[in-house]
Design a protein around this nucleic acid. Structure first.
Lengths: 330, 330
DNA sequence: CTGAAAGCGCTTACAG
DNA sequence: CTGAAAGCGCTTACAG
């Protein structure tokens, strides 16, 4: 039922090769022929089928962005960067949501095997080095964002530094019992931020107190939810010795934590992590990361590698920045 | 370089037809042969190429979700619904971000022409009836979410009802000067909500006051940003007669509006729209819509139509629900 | 249970 | 500037 290149060629009285040339902007087509074909194609609602083009040309002219959750500002900013870099490139961008419950590696490998795109941008997927190594054999352009590896181009944050900066600030203000309000303990960024937290404590000769490592009970999305933050804060409040300040590993959790404080009518200084668009408006002191810029970078890495698979591997690590607003200043 | 069906067939000593059958779960393959082929495929990292399969079988086994912005909870919930419906279907789901600045219709039509998927779920795209009519000729399964049409299956909200309910509540509390804190005046949902707002006023014999129709100056994302809400609220506060209550057309804008109130140290009752996940935690009274459920519905419509293009068109309109929390209760 | 062969809708040297 | 033809990597009747 849908029109094919044959329909157009017949209608225009030319060969399919000529029609193909028109759509591949080869300049070796007579202007009048080109216009005629374009007109017919428009009338008939024709455009070359992506799948057939991909198969014949062995190029997909598309890249795929693989992400675990796309609920947040974090991802939106990255996407903005990617789209801006792609703007003059004539490359299509599709997004695939990876289900964290169903084996991240399996899903990623499957997509790559099926050759959906010319290259893949893996965002916040945190595969193990061993898994990344396995992906290497497909010899396909892959670029990592919010993840680090020697196998692929990567753009990542210095999470340890972020945890360190936030904690240090609190320590400098004189607080000693600082709570680490955590997400899932297994999540890599969480571990790294905890490292930074401990490093800062160490500088102040404070031993990390296990009972101050606290998370909520709701564990969907690795615990990065308002609900988890609320639950965690309730636990903190009911501690025998509640803690004098809080380093919270995400803004979304902080929203929950703030509510719990309000409900219980207590106020504990808090610094969180992400700098979502709402954070400015609810006065969160937080660690900010240059997400737009990183989206641009990671995308450029990918395009370069599609262009030439054998160029040297790039590895950018960005230092986050502490932004002080109300929540830390009591 | 990547392995093809020929490599596998040769290695296994069978024809490519047999290899193909294994991957299409045809049961007419000897168990031992199947296992052998699967083993070889796994060793060699082979899986049938999506594009070649699509071309040969004329089925993509994939659907595409077209959305304008995916920053919000709104979209995340819909996605959850879609994914849950797709869970046992063996259909891939890809997402395509539509750039509102670059001609929504043109982008959508292009995607459809190129035949990326077996069907398309259009979310919050608000094409005109005329444009939808044009898409009709491609005879391709399309399902609309947060949009209404007689041409395609659709699942939408009764925005007028939402605006009416919110405004009525405020009127019932005795407020007379009610501000309509708007997004872009051209946006369809905005218009519909405004209709409901006026309808409620009419019941109270109040003439809509033009000077109470207020929006901010930042107009990215159709004005649905914290910043726009903040700006609008500043205008409201500096009104000669400020208004006794506010109906705000989105929670994100309300976040900005609340901050502006705080900064100016005023408190005006406010009801907003969306019920994002944070809204509960910051005490927003708001209009809530069953997004997860609607994502499920729209996806089922689409699958049914892919199954049989000629079934009768479905049209669900959902009534939103008012949820009272702090922001409206001063 | 398996294979040979046609065909899906394109692109792209090659030749003119 | 244009066409004939091979080929991309699969699926799927058809035949056995």
């Amino acid at each position: 039922m849908p029109k094919t290149i044959y329909d157009i060629a017949k209608e225009a009285g030319v060969s399919i090769a000529t029609v193909s040339r028109v759509f591949n902007s080869s300049n070796s087509v007579k202007e009048s022929t080109r216009e005629k074909i374009l007109k017919i194609a428009d009338d008939l609602g024709y455009h070359p089928q992506a799948y057939a083009q991909g198969l014949a040309s062995k190029k997909k002219n598309s890249i795929m962005l693989l992400v675990p959750v796309m609920s947040n500002y974090f991802f939106t900013e990255i996407l903005r960067g990617t789209q801006d870099v792609l703007a003059d490139e004539n490359i299509e961008l599709t997004i695939l949501n990876i289900n964290q419950e169903k084996g991240v590696f399996r899903q990623v490998e499957q997509i790559i095997k099926r050759q959906w795109a010319d290259g893949y941008l893996l965002v916040s997927l945190h595969l193990s080095q061993q898994e990344l190594q396995k992906l290497k054999r497909y010899k396909v352009p892959i670029s990592l964002l919010d993840d680090h590896s020697t196998h692929f181009d990567s753009v990542s944050f210095n999470n340890e530094q972020g945890g360190y900066t936030a904690t240090k600030y609190l320590l400098n203000k004189g607080y000693k019992r600082i709570v680490f309000l955590s997400g899932s303990k297994e999540a890599l960024p969480n571990k790294e931020r905890y490292k930074g937290y401990k490093k800062a404590l160490a500088e102040f000769k404070i031993k990390p107190d296990e009972s101050l490592y606290i998370t909520g009970d709701s564990m969907d999305r690795d615990g990065f939810t308002e609900k988890n933050g609320y639950e965690a804060m309730c636990k903190i409040i009911s501690l025998d010795e509640p803690g004098e300040a809080i380093f919270c590993t995400s803004d979304i959790k902080a929203v929950g934590a703030l509510k719990a404080m309000n409900d219980a009518n207590v106020r504990i200084p808090l610094i969180s992590y992400d700098d979502l668009s709402i954070s400015e408006y609810i006065g969160l002191s937080t660690i900010s990361q240059p997400m737009y810029k990183m989206g641009c970078q990671a995308t450029r890495h990918l395009l370069n590698r599609i262009d030439n698979y054998d160029i040297i591997i790039c590895d950018h690590i960005h230092n986050p920045e502490l932004i002080i607003r109300n929540s830390s200043e009591i």
